[in-house]
Design a protein around this nucleic acid. Structure first.
Length: 435
RNA sequence: GGAGAGGUGCCAGAGCGGCCGAAUGGGGCGCCCUGCUAAGGCGUUGUCCGGGUAAACCGGACCGAGGGUUCAAAUCCCUCCCUCUCCGCCA
């Protein structure tokens, strides 16, 4: 969430920056937050003064008791009981206003970075790089959707996935399954030079999902296990961000870099009926996430580094791609600035978003309470968090099936993946067992 | 799942209604002493919120979390979470 004190000290600047998101409702919420904050501070002052009196009277009672002056003690106690009554009133008022304020703040999105270009929707996102590795022309045999190729080669079996788990689940088989895993291994290996590999839990607490911003706003998009109050992670960003929740880190150990390969679970509640074929939108998929916790000063450079890392992996796979900067109107709730990498899939003739590289400024870290301390300095500062999909399997897998399809219907495995494919260089129908 | 023990500051560890934001030891930091890496002496040592001139200072909160009792709670009561030991079950 945003810093209330910033809203308090520079309300106009905050509102001006937020107005760039092109959603007027946000400005009303900011006004609301401002009023609640002012009220809350009034109550706080009153409550603390009241408490201070009780504390001081209590000490006087102790003194009177020791002096065996029961009359004076009883008088003080009577006075304190009265103050106790008004404290109850103030405390409940405080709780009420405080939770109202928190509720509003949880729904207020992050302030966009000044350099983010203004726009209303994804139509306004700007291509900042590319298209790169785009062939002058695609052959007809590349214009085949991956779900057809996958079925023909026996490496995609969505029919049975649906039988087992219902719609919007997919299943890869044989070299298709191997390639899914190979993609993860590739992404991990390419980032292992600087990122510590984590294998986090896939089920997390409500508080964990709130820290990264998925709750309360996007509850419908996540799978939940109500009986145990657990949620299925929609991305490894969730557990990785909360790794240091509630901690005060040392400035000199920043930036911290983590990567994780996990399953990601998404209900896709708002997208029922869209992209139902193939692997473009599924309830469960594999992804390698890279994440960094930095100081505010380190963050801009880290954003560039993460972008370069993701880009280089996509480039290494030989796929046609481009880099977009997300405009203010399309920027995610928690995002301060972000870039998307899209891969072109000739079979379905679409640019597929395969990675989103995001800088959250202190928005997530404030919710998660991740701070850092400079040596010698008193107090602490809120850290910054950034993350990116190093590689999201399904869409890259799909893009490979379409881009690398050969005239005979087989799929040539990108060279960088071959070491992870037990020597296979091609996926053809003869390389697959039938049933 | 059952039984028991426990969760206190950077760490170890006392406190078990008021004089406790918390003894003591260790560590860290600063100064002093000592002619060299050792020993010793003194001082200091958290976080968050609010007020105040981003100082000094003042007030409030924090002893696993949340409630309760009390004039007053680290200390008493309740609920929950976590850790450890034993038993049970289980990849």
């Amino acid at each position: 969430m945003i810093d209330v004190r910033l809203l308090r000290s520079e309300p106009d600047a905050v509102k001006a920056a937020m107005a760039r998101r092109a959603k007027p409702a946000i400005l009303e919420e900011l006004d609301h937050a401002e009023r609640l904050d002012a009220r809350l501070r009034d109550i706080t002052v009153e409550r603390d003064e009241n408490r201070a009196q009780i504390n001081s009277i209590s000490k006087d009672v102790a003194t009177a008791r020791r002096a065996k002056d029961d009359v004076a003690a009883e008088k003080l106690m009577q006075r304190s009981r009265e103050l106790g009554e008004s404290e109850k009133v103030l405390a409940s008022e405080f709780d009420q206003v405080n939770s109202a304020l928190r509720e509003v703040l949880l729904r207020v999105p992050n302030i966009p970075h000044a350099q983010v270009s203004e726009g209303v929707s994804d139509q306004d996102n700007k291509v900042v790089k590319g298209p790169l590795q785009m062939p002058p022309k695609f052959a007809d045999y590349q214009r085949v959707p991956h779900w057809e190729t996958g079925l023909a080669l026996g490496i995609l079996d969505n029919e049975r996935a649906t039988k087992i788990s219902g719609s919007m689940f997919t299943m890869q088989r044989g070299l298709g399954a191997t390639m899914a895993r190979a993609l993860c291994q590739l992404a991990l290996d390419r980032n292992a030079d600087a990122f510590e590999e984590i294998r986090p839990p896939s089920l997390v607490l409500t508080s964990t999902l709130t820290a990264t911003g998925q709750l309360p706003k996007f509850a419908d998009d996540a799978f939940s296990i109500e009986r145990d109050d657990l949620w299925c992670i929609p991305t490894a960003e969730v557990p990785l961000t909360s790794l240091h929740a509630g901690e005060i880190l040392k400035a000199e150990e920043l930036p911290l870099r983590y990567m994780a390969h996990t399953s990601c679970f998404r209900r896709e509640a708002g997208s029922a009926g869209r992209d139902t074929r193939g692997m473009l939108r599924t309830h469960e998929f594999d992804k390698v996430e890279i994440l960094a916790v930095t100081t505010p000063q380190q963050a801009p450079e880290m954003l560039v580094e993460l972008t370069n890392r993701v880009e280089s992996t996509i480039a290494a796979l030989g796929l046609p791609y481009r880099v977009l900067e997300i405009c203010t109107g399309d920027l995610g709730q928690s995002h301060h600035r972000s870039f998307d990498i899209e891969v072109y899939a000739p079979g379905c003739d679409q640019w597929l978003e395969v990675s989103s590289i995001s800088w959250f400024s202190d928005y997530q870290a404030r919710r998660a309470d991740i701070r850092f301390k400079n040596p010698g300095a008193k107090g602490s500062e809120i850290a910054h968090t950034l993350n990116a999909s190093a590689l999201a399997v399904p869409r890259v897998w799909a893009a490979i099936l379409e881009n690398c399809r050969q005239a005979d219907g087989s799929v040539a495995i990108p060279e960088v993946l071959q070491p992870y494919m037990r020597g296979a260089k091609v996926i053809s129908s003869s390389s697959q067992a039938k049933p």
